[in-house]
């Protein structure tokens, strides 16, 4: 047993959920893995403190989102994240929803995309989202409104996804 065993156990239990969030944020499997690995590399440095008196998962999610916002700005370009349908295949509604959603998400700002992922994938409350992003609840409301409006404008058929209305 070494001093990183607790960390390993945490990663084994939560890495797939965190990877899904990372994938929704960046839209590319390799970049998502790179992003998550960067974050976990930082988390392991603070592990003794986090495991003692913190909430490692919430901290990691927060670090992941904030690393995404700054990391993409620093080192990445708009990436071809919208794969077209595969050749010769037909698609059911769920597949088409996924394709359209991926294309639309790629056109949101980083913060808008993060808000969509946190509110509608992680099911965080506005207060939890604000805490994760380090901004006000009002800012979360505003970002959510703009993100949903942008999704509707980019892909009107997403309206059929029963996107929740937000308070204006």
């Amino acid at each position: 047993m070494d001093r990183h065993d607790d960390f390993r156990e945490f990663v084994r239990a939560r890495q797939q959920a965190l990877m899904r969030t990372a994938y929704l944020l960046v839209g590319d499997a390799h970049l998502a893995e790179d992003l998550l690995q960067n974050v976990l590399t930082k988390v392991v440095g603070h592990w003794s403190k986090l495991s003692r008196d913190g909430n490692p998962e919430a901290y990691t999610r927060k670090a992941l989102v904030n690393e995404y916002i700054s990391w993409r700005r620093r080192s990445s370009r708009e990436l071809p994240s919208a794969d077209p349908p595969e050749h010769g295949t037909s698609h059911d509604n769920a597949t088409l929803d996924r394709i359209v959603l991926r294309q639309a998400l790629a056109k949101l700002t980083r913060k808008q995309r993060a808000v969509i992922v946190l509110r509608f994938w992680e099911d965080l409350t506005e207060a939890q989202t604000a805490d994760t992003l380090g901004c006000s609840i009002g800012n979360v409301k505003s970002q959510t409104h703009h993100a949903l409006a942008r999704l509707r404008a980019l892909a009107p058929e997403l309206a059929e996804l029963r996107i929740p209305e937000v308070i204006r």
Binding site: R98, L101, I116
Partner: peptide, 24 residues
């Protein structure tokens, strides 16, 4: 919502990873 379901479907595309040792 169906938005959540669509996000869930999209998230399922994320490949399995094993990052603990790489992070350490």
């Amino acid at each position: 919502t169906r938005l959540h379901e669509a996000l869930k479907d999209l998230a399922e595309e994320a490949p399995p990873v094993n990052l603990a040792d790489a992070a350490i």
